[in-house]
């Protein structure tokens, strides 16, 4: 029979329309309230298709999302060196950057004139940056990471879109917040600098294992 294929194709469309209304009904009045309702509606569980009401509701970006790089500095409440750069101004990021948008000035001790392991200036032209993430891949000190902030449009290129060190620097806690899994993996791989965090995670895992053992022994006895 002619037209079967069209009917079958349109059935898919109709299914999507019906499902978006079903989603509307399921989350009626509590789209934003409730634990993770909004995230669930945006995520894999959502079945319908609908418009993202952008400035009011934003799609949660995945953890591996990359936009403009930022420089990691120590947290302001770090006991030993608050606000200290992780960057040592080795210049590897500037060398690997495919569009060549990074400019580093190596730091110098004003008295002796010898280089110190921190940058005096660090510029990224975010209108040239192609968000490839090579800088963060190649950085041997995990000092440059890709940020998730994409709301960067402005009226002037030269004054607003050439980020200096102050604009680029963000605390380590920011990286832990936007990419918790990756940050933890990196910490474990580094092993040296965040003993506290690693110990806390280890203790947590051990406690969970102990609980599991206990409950298992209870069930068996």
């Amino acid at each position: 029979m002619y037209g079967q294929g069209i009917a079958r194709g349109l059935l898919v469309t109709m299914k999507h329309i019906a499902r978006s209304y079903m989603d509307d009904i399921r989350y009626a009045g509590r789209k934003y309230s409730g634990e993770g309702n909004f995230g669930a509606r945006q995520g894999m569980q959502a079945t319908g298709s609908y418009t993202v009401q952008y400035p009011d509701e934003k799609i949660a970006v995945p953890e591996r999302f990359r936009f403009i790089p930022f420089l990691i500095v120590e947290d302001h409440d770090h006991p030993e060196r608050p606000g200290h750069d992780w960057c040592t101004s080795c210049g590897i990021c500037a060398k690997v950057c495919p569009p060549q948008c990074i400019w580093i000035v190596r730091g110098k001790n004003p008295q002796t004139g010898r280089p110190v392991p921190e940058p005096d200036a660090f510029y990224i032209d975010i209108d040239i940056c192609m968000n490839c993430g090579y800088c963060s891949e190649f950085c041997p000190f995990d000092a440059i990471k890709m940020d998730h902030d994409y709301e960067l449009a402005s009226y002037d290129r030269t004054s607003a879109h050439i980020f200096d060190k102050q604009k680029l620097s963000k605390e380590m806690s920011h990286w832990k917040r936007i990419a918790p899994t990756t940050a933890l993996e990196e910490m474990q791989a580094r092993g040296g600098w965040e003993h506290k965090d690693i110990l806390r995670e280890k203790a947590k895992a051990e406690r969970a294992a102990a609980r599991a053992r206990k409950s298992a022994s209870k069930q068996s006895s």
Partner: peptide
Amino acid sequence: PVDVYVPGCPPTPQALLYGMIT
């Protein structure tokens, strides 16, 4: 004469919408 610059390679739809709102 450019009025608004939207960085990104490419900018996500939300970044472009932000540029348009700007």
